Simulated assay, not measured.
Amino acid sequence: MRKRLSEAQFQACIRGLDVGAQTLQIAHGVLVCGQTQASFVQALGLSKGAVSQAVHRVWRVFARSNIPPGYERVSAVLPQHQAFIVKKWAEDAQARNNGSKI
């Protein structure tokens, strides 16, 4: 699944975020405009990791703030069979919320 943000979502994410102009350019191009990370690797002469990190810094802000009311993000280490069940619950919750990633 390709990570995408609207312009408004992007602007909300970067408000108060302490990153450089190049990071914002890369993240905007990938998340809002749909450009590939590879295009920035080539155009700017950066490593794949550097481009990926730029995108991830903005996406992480969005993921942390985009939790519907009544939901909570959790992290746990579980046996495989329990992890499978929890992943199914997460898929069901995502489907109930119009497919938005939670």
Rank of each mutant, 00 (worst) to 15 (best):
V30Y: 03
E7C: 01
E91L: 15
L17R: 08
G29R: 03
F40W: 10
G29P: 03
G29I: 08
L78Y: 08
I26N: 05
K101D: 15
Q11M: 11
V77N: 08
H56P: 03
S6F: 02
W59A: 12
Q9C: 03
S6K: 03
Q37N: 11
R2G: 07
Q25K: 12
L17S: 11
L5M: 03
P68M: 07
E91I: 08
Q35G: 00
R60T: 14
N66E: 14
Q53A: 10
A50Y: 08
F84P: 00
Q80T: 15
H81N: 09
Q37I: 10
Q82M: 14
C33I: 05
V30A: 04
P68N: 07
R64K: 11
R2M: 12
A27E: 13
S52L: 05
R4E: 11
H81M: 03
V61R: 02
D18T: 10
V32H: 03
S39M: 08
R60S: 14
Q82L: 15
L5H: 08
L31C: 03
I67P: 01
L46V: 07
C13D: 07
D18P: 02
L46A: 09
E7Y: 07
F84R: 13
E72S: 10
H56C: 02
A76H: 06
L24E: 06
H81K: 07
T23W: 00
G49Q: 14
R60Q: 15
F40A: 03
F40L: 09
Q22H: 09
H56Y: 12
E7D: 14
V19N: 02
M1L: 08
E91P: 02
R57G: 06
S47M: 05
V77H: 08
A90P: 04
T36R: 10
